[in-house]
Amino acid sequence: MKINLEKSTKTTSEFLHDGEVVEDLRRQMLKFATQQLGDFHLAEDAVQDALIGALKNVTSFGGRAALKTWVFAILKNKIADVLRSKQKTVNVSSLQGAGEEDENEDFMSLFDQKGGWNHDDRPSQWCDPEASLSQKDFWIVFEACLDHLPPKQARIFMMREFIELETDEICEAADITINLLFVTLYRARMRLRECMDMNWYQRSQNHAELS
């Protein structure tokens, strides 16, 4: 029996000249960049720059997934640049009050009076027995949990974890103190942890129903 090994061997360059592929990619990039920058026009510019940069330096490593990873890496750098040069561009006021929007959230309800975990809130190991059935759903739940963070908290969290800015860069861009940054990231992680725990890791049969 002869096995046909011939499969689609489009190069990166061919993908980048395929209008449909690029349009799809552009749409995803724009969504991501807008989320990070909180401004559609800045996001459009960053995406445009990233795509031009990608076309200029196109190489022929294979496949659509590799292309996407690569283009997103370029986009991430562009976004980092925009955030770093905040005095010119980023709308700082959109980040002001990042600590206040969630002031009362200290997560004390998870702990007893001595600061120990309440019985029902004690974290347990994250495993996912039925994961292989529903991989796509994981990211749906993750995005939903991100969406449920207070907006400024989410922006700060994404600067740190998605764009991987250094802490001092975030303080500068968002005009907050280092202590407020720690608190904000703590709150974001606590919320995300709880949300993922409830809606993914511990969920029974039902799909994520975010409260």
Partner: peptide, 27 residues
């Protein structure tokens, strides 16, 4: 969580979730 955030951006094409650190490609 940190690993998940990284994968969300980097779009690594892991095939299966087992425990804790292996996840499918993000959307």
């Amino acid at each position: 969580l940190r690993g998940v955030a990284k994968q969300y951006v980097n779009g690594l094409a892991d095939e299966l979730i087992k425990c804790e650190d292996e996840l499918p490609p993000p959307p």
